[in-house]
Design a protein around this nucleic acid. Structure first.
Length: 453
RNA sequence: UCCUGAGUAGCUCAGCGGUAGAGCGGGUGGCUGUUAACCACUAGGUCGUAGGUUCGAACCCUACCUCAGGAGCCA
């Protein structure tokens, strides 16, 4: 049975006769021996394998090029040379799978853009191996955060007939043939159905039964968005809490981000060091500051004021009642606050019907958590729990109450104050790794005109 | 979808009207307990696609395709 390189490198003492499998990162030949740098994805570091030229298997060396897969049997000994603590003195090397000179991954000089074109091979690189190990760790940390706080994991549907208003264009789900004129009533579900853009509405039903719940699953948006921060398929974390108001919601969101940053720093030190060195030299400082300093909170109205008083000329004018533009959000997070900031109480005219109306009559209890470099990483709100006000908001936004009957029922029977938010998992990963394009934190990214794998 | 920029060797790029170049990667030889090893030689290109201008186009013009950055939409 072979061991992972992660296990081997953690050894406290030399160990005879172990077996390791992996891919050759590079081979260097010397007079008396060859050096293989072996990685198996189990950790950031590779294992140096030394193959003595006198071994029968050394005649394999010329065919062991970068990318080849091998199984090595040998003794783990302290490395006599600088650069690594342990090395594997090979007794036998078996070539499992050759990689010829056309193997696209070389020892240096690859751009993320090129690696995107070989998404099936890029996890073998330092950068993407690190990203996807971190992705796994962070996903587990998300569950831990909520489970430690007594939240229940709710599986809201992927196929849905309800449009979570304001969340964006939806992908249609149908079994009808292309070009068919069949009515929705004749389709598989007897009504138009879509891939979910949010589990929030169903999440509210579960929060109003189990108390605190969260969802964590794939989400789909058919927007023709071509930016470094948008994907057509992404993973979203959506907690929903009964008896929470907006401020409790914001506090949980802040703790959530901080917990995950802490997890990144304590659980992925090798990857963090690599990202800080090669991807974003400010990363560690920025993450540390996220832990050290409390997040600021600024109301939308205060935000508009400080933008107007900033003396900065923005491309888009700052007007109360209109959405904050990216340049405005960036100014607030990156220059004014210089750290994570939550903006809350937005004008109701720019927000969806389910957000709770404030007493001023013109704002709703909504919040966005912005982080430097990424922008919005969390968007949430306290939900409108008052039946009459919810119905009025639906009417004002021209929504058919019949479609949302079950949702309105939650206000009809034992309605309670409740709140929740959505956190973009990939945006979180961008924040904790410093990787600047969402396509590089998803294994096989889906964006407009692009789903080749 | 809009704006801007870029597509030249397997990869990263130089060349910007007059014989297609370098580094890395590959091959051969040398040297060496090496560390993105090193030295020498060598193979490798419809210069994104299609038109056009010109005696002559990788280079100038037009359209299209692809990618990137910014914007909108949002997580």
């Amino acid at each position: 049975m072979s061991e992972t390189i992660r296990q081997v490198l953690a050894s406290e003492s030399p160990r005879p006769s172990i077996t390791v499998c992996g891919w050759v990162r590079t081979r260097r030949d010397s007079k008396a021996c060859s050096f293989l740098e072996l990685t198996d994805g189990s950790c950031f570091k590779g294992l140096q394998v030394v193959v003595d030229a006198s071994l029968p298997c050394s005649n394999l060396m010329p065919s062991i090029l970068t990318g080849a897969s091998v199984q090595v049997e040998g003794d783990l000994i302290p490395s006599p040379a600088a650069g690594q603590r342990w090395e594997l003195q090979a007794k036998n090397v078996e070539l499992l799978g050759e990689a010829d000179a056309s193997y696209p991954l070389q020892k240096k000089g690859h751009t993320p853009e090129f690696l995107r074109t070989i998404a099936h091979l890029r996890p073998r690189t330092n950068l993407f191996g690190s990203v996807f190990r971190v992705r796994s760790r962070m996903a587990f940390a998300v569950h831990r955060f909520f489970q430690e706080r007594g939240f229940f994991y709710a599986h809201t549907p992927i196929i849905t007939s309800s449009d979570c208003e304001g969340a964006g264009e939806m992908f249609r789900v149908t079994t009808q043939k292309p070009g068919s004129n069949a009515k929705p009533e004749d389709d598989f579900f007897g009504r138009p159905t879509y891939l979910t853009v949010s589990g929030q509405l169903q999440g509210e039903a579960f929060a109003c039964a189990l108390g605190n719940i969260y969802t964590f699953g794939p989400t789909f948006r058919a927007e023709n968005s071509n930016t470094a921060r948008h994907a057509a398929e992404f993973w979203m974390i959506e907690p929903e809490m009964a008896f929470y108001d907006l401020f409790a919601d914001m506090t949980l969101a802040e703790e959530n981000v901080r917990y995950l940053v802490q997890a990144m720093m304590t659980e992925c030190p090798d990857e963090l060091e690599f990202f800080n060195k090669f991807v974003d030299k400010e990363l560690v400082a920025r993450l540390q500051q996220t832990l050290d300093k409390p997040f600021e909170r600024i109301s939308y109205t205060e935000a508009v004021d400080l933008l107007l008083k900033s003396g900065r000329s923005f491309e888009h004018p700052v007007v109360w009642g209109e959405g904050l533009q990216t340049e405005h959000e960036r100014y607030i997070a990156e220059e004014h606050v210089k750290g994570p900031v939550t903006i809350y109480n937005y004008p109701k005219v720019i927000k969806p019907f389910y957000m709770r109306q404030n007493d001023d009559g013109r704002t709703v209890a909504a919040m966005d958590l912005l982080v430097p470099g990424i922008g919005e990483i969390i968007g949430g709100s306290q939900r409108e729990e008052r039946l009459d006000l919810l119905q009025a908001a639906m009417k004002a936004q021209d929504l058919d109450e019949e479609t949302y009957r079950w949702y309105v029922d939650l206000r009809r029977y034992g309605s309670v104050p409740h709140a929740g938010y959505g956190m973009g998992f990939e945006r979180l990963l961008m924040f904790v790794t410093g990787v600047s394009n969402i396509r590089d934190v998803i294994p096989f990214a889906r964006t407009p005109g692009h789903a080749p794998y």
